[in-house]
Computed example of a mutant assay.
Amino acid sequence: MNRRRLLAGLGAVATSGVALGTGAFTSAEADRSVGVTVADDDQAYLALSPTQAANATFVNQDSGANNELSIDINDATGTADNGDGVGPNSVYEFDEVFRIENQGTQEIEVSISELVDDDFDPTASGLTVQFYPGTDVDSPLHDDPITLGTGTAQVIGLRIETGEPTVENFNADATVRAEAT
């Protein structure tokens, strides 16, 4: 009789475990399709494009692959007396150079990295490049991100401070970051 009770008890426990299962699993694998479109810079969810302001002359939007935006503060074109670049031991501010637009589906915070000596060349002695919203040079975007709602845009300026550089040309990549708020 004890044996029958034991078997009946084990059967009841096993049945209730199956009926009240937790749904937990150790691993699972499922194939799903994912579609991603890589859009040109000016058509992406975080769109980058030149402004209509005078300083947009320093912006290039590559008409080739990806329509990527770049800034070149060399040989200003479209003026009678073209300059060749920034001077040593000086500060230059270029308001409203390019535009960032949130073409995504949620509000974002946008920041842009500051560029310093080592980003260009270790011998760039004192060179810094900062990005700022519109004409607000006192709010660099690496310290104070801007918030963009869906469908809104902000023009961006550029501040360059030169020290006593020992090389003439500097190139570096700035990183634009956008995070949902």
Results as ranks from 00 to 15, higher is better:
A19C: 12
A19S: 13
A19D: 08
T22E: 07
G23E: 02
T26F: 12
S27A: 14
S27P: 04
S27R: 13
A28G: 13
A28N: 11
E29H: 13
A30P: 00
A30R: 14
D31M: 10
D31Y: 10
S33G: 13
V34N: 11
G35T: 15
V36S: 02
V38H: 09
A39W: 04
A39M: 08
A39N: 13
D40M: 03
D40E: 09
A44I: 00
Y45K: 10
A47W: 06
L48F: 05
T51H: 11
T51F: 12
T51V: 14
Q52T: 15
A53C: 06
A54Q: 11
N55G: 08
N55A: 09
F58S: 02
Q61W: 02
S63C: 04
S63F: 08
A65I: 10
N66E: 08
N67W: 08
E68Y: 00
E68V: 07
L69P: 04
L69E: 03
I71R: 01
D72N: 14
D72G: 10
I73E: 01
N74Y: 06
D75H: 03
A76C: 05
T77G: 11
T79Q: 12
T79C: 05
A80C: 01
A80T: 13
N82L: 10
N82T: 15
G85E: 01
G85Q: 03
V86E: 02
V86A: 04
V86C: 02
V86Q: 00
G87Y: 08
N89V: 12
N89R: 12
N89Y: 10
N89Q: 14
S90L: 00
V91N: 08
Y92W: 10
E93T: 15
D95T: 10
E96D: 14
E96N: 15
V97P: 00
V97F: 00
I100C: 03
Q103P: 04
T105A: 15
Q106C: 09
Q106I: 11
E109Y: 08
I112F: 03
S113K: 00
L115I: 11
V116I: 14
V116E: 13
D118Y: 04
F120S: 03
F120C: 06
F120Q: 04
D121I: 07
P122Q: 06
P122C: 00
P122E: 07
A124N: 07
S125D: 15
G126P: 11
G126E: 11
L127I: 12
Y132K: 00
Y132C: 01
G134F: 05
G134K: 11
D136G: 01
D136S: 11
D138S: 14
D138V: 07
S139F: 03
S139R: 10
S139N: 11
S139Y: 03
P140R: 01
P140E: 01
L141D: 03
L141C: 08
L141S: 06
H142S: 14
H142W: 14
D144G: 00
P145Q: 04
T147S: 14
G151M: 09
A153K: 09
Q154L: 02
G157M: 03
